[in-house]
Design a protein around this nucleic acid. Sequence first.
DNA 1: GGTGAAGACTTCAAAGCTAAAGTTAGAAGT
DNA 2: ACTTCTAACTTTAGCTTTGAAGTCTTCACC
Lengths: 193, 193
Amino acid sequence: MSDTPDGAGALPPPGEPSLDEQIAAYQREFQDLDPQVEKVVSALGRLNRRMNVAYGRQVSELGISNTEWEVLKTLVLAGAPYRLGPGELAKRLGLTPAAMTHRIDRMASEGLVTRDRDENNRVRVIVELTDEGRAKWLEAMRMASAFEEDLLQDLSSDERGVLGDVLIRLLRRVEDAQPDAGGRLKDLDPDED
Amino acid sequence: MSDTPDGAGALPPPGEPSLDEQIAAYQREFQDLDPQVEKVVSALGRLNRRMNVAYGRQVSELGISNTEWEVLKTLVLAGAPYRLGPGELAKRLGLTPAAMTHRIDRMASEGLVTRDRDENNRVRVIVELTDEGRAKWLEAMRMASAFEEDLLQDLSSDERGVLGDVLIRLLRRVEDAQPDAGGRLKDLDPDED
DNA sequence: GGTGAAGACTTCAAAGCTAAAGTTAGAAGT
DNA sequence: ACTTCTAACTTTAGCTTTGAAGTCTTCACC
């Protein structure tokens, strides 16, 4: 029902070498490289990059930015009255409290959230999703899930299951590998091949 | 030979819900969601995020930032004399030329690259990797590939092959899905679940 | 019930990015 | 040769984020 999602999808940056070219080039420069490993890692990085571009394009049609969408998602994930404090939001989004303050400023001025002091504890602030914010989230979610289903459409249900399981194993492995600071590391680059 | 890579690995942001919790919450709020699809997509996003944190930690031990490492990689990928113009670099990295100018400034002042006018065409500038830059790249590459092999160590060779192929199919699908601008979209968020 | 410490934001200065305007060298037409 | 166009950066202004330094409650202890 949607062979080409909408305006979704993302082309590679013009001059970028193809995956195979890239791996071949790395091997020339660094013999110890395992091409199979590199293939997986590079494909993962590129796929993610393209997907983020696609998400960004989609939500921008709704007049919100990708970063604003992140905040909407986090509030919805919190459930029911869709409230969280700036500190908690910052923690979950991996931002500094300072950045959170500014983001909330913007989003409040756009009517996506409200910001109020907690009357029971006037040190705390409560950020709450507005109806408009919730509506935007819903629209974005609809677009995103359509895009995601389209993306995976060539995979059989079995393949999807296996892919999910493998990714989760990898995820566990990264998280188990020498824990330390956790979150909020500067310079997380979106572009990682 | 390396069960815990080094100082690699990345913990989830403290307050973040687990993948399963997250998917359950989304389903509560949005019935149409296909949990299998969401599982794949969320795992992909998280995995990538954690990996970028890990890369960032590793290269910072070498005194370079993740963004600088990107530039080093691009120059090495260009091959042989490791030269590219700022414009070409910007295109491949998905940056604006303005940002590239500043990045090159920093990297030149740190001795990672040189910046010279092309004597044959004085409008052009040539950015060239220094020996130090190349050495940094090599060290970073060694750390990264060790980390990557460790990450995939629980997967059989078959699994790695299949995973790579599936990811490449997905990659093709994103790129084929309605091409348009390509690269350089503002607001590519690193954090995307 | 006064003082000190801790917690939860907010403010400020500086880094790095984008978009748009500005420069400068080479190319094209007349 | 003179003007105009184009290409390839660089500069400028404004935004978003970070890290560090406030500010303002609330809580604990004396």
